Simulated scan of single mutants.
Amino acid sequence: MRPAVLVTPLAKTIPVVENAIYVGVDAGVLTLLEQEFPVEFAVGDFDSMSQEAYEKIESLVKIEKHPIMKDESDAQLALRLVKERGCSPIYLCGALSKRIDHTIANLRLLMYHYPDLILWDEKQNVSLFQRGKHVLKNT
C-alpha cells in the first residue's frame, strides 16, 4: 500500500513521506504548491480561498470540487478518496491546530473510521495502536 499525505489549510509544515501521494484539502493545496510538493489532486468546496486563487490552482492541479453544503467535511472527503485508492497509512496534516471543532472531528475520524490515520502536526501527532503488544521507547 502507498501512504497518503493530506494537507489542510491549517498545515504549515508538511512531512516528507517516502512514496506518498500528496493531496490538498481545500486551501491546503496552496501550501503544497508553495512548498513544491507533487500534488496528486485537491478536494473540497474551496470556500476558504479567493476565486483568483481557485482559478490558479485549477490550471495546475486536478480538482474534485464539492458543494459547500454537504454531509462530510473536506478532510472526510479526502480521507474517503485516498482510502478508495488503497492508501495506508494516511497522514492528515494540520489536524490538531487552532480550531477545536476540527480537532475533535479529526479525533473522531481516527477513533471510529480510519484506524490507520495519523493526525500530524509540526509538534505532535496522534495515532492508534492496533491490537497486540507494543514497546514504547523514551525519546
Rank of each mutant, 00 (worst) to 15 (best):
M1C: 08
P3T: 06
A4Y: 04
V5S: 02
V5Y: 14
V7N: 06
T8K: 02
T8R: 01
P9C: 04
T13F: 11
T13E: 13
N19A: 00
A27L: 07
A27F: 12
L30G: 06
L30M: 10
L33G: 02
L33W: 11
E34A: 14
E36S: 15
V39F: 08
F41T: 04
V43H: 09
V43F: 05
G44K: 10
D47N: 14
M49W: 10
Q51A: 08
E52N: 14
I57C: 09
S59C: 06
S59R: 13
K62E: 13
K65F: 12
M69I: 10
K70N: 15
E72C: 04
A75T: 15
A75M: 03
Q76F: 03
A78G: 01
V82P: 06
K83C: 10
R85W: 08
G86R: 07
S88V: 01
P89R: 02
L92I: 08
K98T: 07
H102E: 12
T103K: 14
T103V: 13
I104C: 05
N106H: 14
N106Y: 11
N106M: 04
R108V: 12
Y112A: 01
Y114W: 11
Y114M: 02
Y114S: 02
D116P: 10
W120D: 01
D121V: 13
N125W: 13
S127G: 02
Q130L: 11
V135G: 04
V135A: 02
L136Q: 00
T139Q: 15
